[in-house]
């Protein structure tokens, strides 16, 4: 089974490092797939792109505009957005950086919200990918760590592995 990760444009790494982490490939937003900030723009690029933001109306517009995947920055459930993602067959990425970059009481709060978001998305049958969406090398993780974080959020072993090995590359291709 091959594992893949998706990172933000500011993340710098080399191929040997990706191999050491046990990842077959690391996709960089901006280079391998377009990135759209749904909080700052309401019009989106053509072709496949990943929309990141917390503005639910803009995320719905992004899904309708052909987004390959959506990242909900505040991990809050919006039923209308979830239904739109299901209808458009848009994947949902749960970024592990939201958990690893927080401290003290903020971290369990984010874990709880991401767990509820995951549970809701799973019930609706959405494609759920687990990626670091790291902005720097310090936020990157090996495939083992991403899978354990996915399990902490509520996925079982097979769902976590599927999210990292199958959903992530399907978003970019």
């Amino acid at each position: 089974m091959d594992f893949y990760d998706i990172v933000m444009p500011s993340c710098e790494f080399d191929d040997k490092f990706a191999k050491r982490l046990g990842l077959k490939g690391i996709f960089k937003c901006g280079a391998d797939i377009k990135l759209a900030n749904a909080d700052k723009q309401s019009s989106f690029p053509e072709g496949r792109f990943i929309a990141v933001g917390s503005n639910k109306n803009n995320l719905i517009a992004a899904a309708r505009a052909g987004a390959a995947a959506v990242v909900v920055s505040d991990s809050r459930i919006d039923r209308k957005l979830m239904m739109e993602l299901k209808e458009q067959k848009t994947a949902l990425i749960l970024p592990t950086t939201l958990i690893t970059s927080s401290y003290n009481l903020e971290r369990p709060k984010r874990l709880y919200m991401m767990g509820r978001l995951y549970s809701h998305a799973k019930r609706l049958g959405l494609d759920i990918g687990f990626a670091t969406m790291a902005e720097s090398k310090a936020n990157m993780c090996s495939y083992m760590q991403v899978i354990q974080l996915a399990r902490l959020v509520g996925a079982d072993e097979s769902q976590a592995r599927h999210g990292v090995s199958a959903v992530n590359p399907s978003i970019v291709d």
């Binding site: 050491r20 982490l21 046990g22 958990i99 690893t100 970059s101 971290r107 090398k137 310090a138 936020n139 990157m140 993780c141 090996s142 083992m144 760590q145 354990q148 974080l149 399990r151 902490l152």
Partner: peptide, 26 residues
């Protein structure tokens, strides 16, 4: 083992310096 992997993932600061630990193999 799983809790240790998660513990190492959560560990981002050591002695006031930013750091990260990657579990390469088990």
């Amino acid at each position: 083992y799983e809790q240790l992997v998660l513990g190492l993932t959560f560990l981002k600061r050591l002695d006031g310096k930013e750091t990260a630990f990657y579990t390469i193999n088990a």
